[in-house]
């Protein structure tokens, strides 16, 4: 089977014929089955890496949602991811509350932050919006260090409470992250056929036509941003739980750029397989490239450039180029 089908399960976007999705469904089911039994067969380091991979896959997917449904690009999603992660960590540290409560709060925080960013920036697009999102990400480490009393400053915070007391820790983290990823992918698959999802796709392709059918640009932008930020925040909550720790280094501008790299590499897919490819690349590659040290960002930068140049024919990245009016 062609690699492009693995990485681009929504190739259907161009030709939404019915036959191929069946195959994809089976493939996705197979992957889920393998991932579900994996903990019985493998060591804890791999499980740990995979948990992070699932969490990062959600972050990548949140960027893909923005690109696919909004036609916009963010390089500052590390801000929303950090918001979710720190919500979980701070609520445990200062309020003694576990994930059952902090997770929904993290989602709400992501949603609210998405709205707060989207409303004033709703008339920006392309490179301007990307730069505005970058400002968010750049300000974040400073903010975290400044609020040391709450966030633990440079050191960050630990997360130690279990989701299910008495169950092995590595297993909980792994299955929680996997379940979150699968649920997000199912929700996004359903979203594609919803009234709102279809309205956003029309608004992205033809904002004026969408307006003529009652779908305003502001609604479209604010909705897609709030959705994307909520997903990013969820990913942060999963990262925090899966890695048991949060610190400012995990949420730099580079993280934001990596999420975008992952999204580009997964061709902005919102399916499980696409998200896994994106999340896998940004999680596992650095671990294997650890020896390359300072060159990692350069490698990523080059990868981003190459993939963007090769594959941007059908995506919102084209809008980064100035001069394309709607």
């Amino acid at each position: 089977m062609a690699v492009s089908e693995l990485v681009h399960p929504e190739g259907a976007i161009r030709s939404p014929a019915r036959a191929v999705p069946d195959l994809r469904k089976w493939l996705a089911a197979l992957v889920v089955a393998v991932l579900a039994v994996l903990p019985m067969l493998s060591g804890s380091f791999l499980l740990y890496s995979l948990s992070l991979c699932f969490a990062n896959a959600i972050a990548v997917l949140s960027v893909s949602v923005l690109v696919r449904y909004g036609g916009e690009v963010s390089i500052g999603h590390s801000f929303f991811v950090a918001l979710g992660a720190y919500t979980v960590a701070v609520m445990e540290k200062h309020l003694g509350l576990g994930l059952w409560i902090s997770l929904p709060v993290a989602l709400l925080m992501g949603f609210a932050a998405g709205l707060l960013f989207a409303v004033p920036s709703r008339r920006m697009s392309g490179i301007y919006l990307a730069v505005a999102s970058m400002a968010l990400a750049l300000s974040l480490p400073e903010l975290l260090i400044h609020m040391e009393r709450w966030t633990g400053g440079f050191e960050g915070l630990y997360i130690s409470r279990d989701l299910l007391p008495g169950v092995a820790k590595a297993g909980q983290r792994y299955y929680f992250a996997l379940a979150a990823l699968i649920l997000v992918c199912l929700a996004m698959a359903h979203f594609r056929g919803s009234r709102q999802g279809m309205a956003l796709l029309l608004a992205r392709a033809h904002p004026r036509a969408a307006e003529a059918f009652g779908i305003t640009r502001s609604w479209a932008r604010i909705s897609v941003f709030a959705l994307s930020a909520t997903l990013a925040s969820l990913s942060g909550a999963v990262v925090a739980f899966a890695s048991s720790t949060v610190s400012p280094n995990s949420f730099t501008l580079w993280s934001g750029i990596f999420y975008l790299v992952g999204s580009v590499v997964s061709l902005q897919g919102t399916s499980l397989l696409a998200a896994l490819v994106g999340g896998g690349i940004i999680t596992l590659v650095p671990q294997y490239l650890a020896g390359a040290g300072d060159y990692v960002p350069i490698l990523y930068g080059s990868a981003l450039l190459i993939v963007t140049l090769l594959a941007n024919s059908g995506s919102g990245l084209r809008r980064l180029l100035p001069g394309k009016g709607a």
């Binding site: 976007i13 161009r14 279809m198 029309l202 392709a205 033809h206």
Partner: peptide, 14 residues
């Protein structure tokens, strides 16, 4: 001004 990402039927549904 139809969305290329939607089927014809879905475009009409919008």
């Amino acid at each position: 001004a139809l969305s290329p990402d939607l089927t014809l039927l879905e475009n009409v549904m919008t």
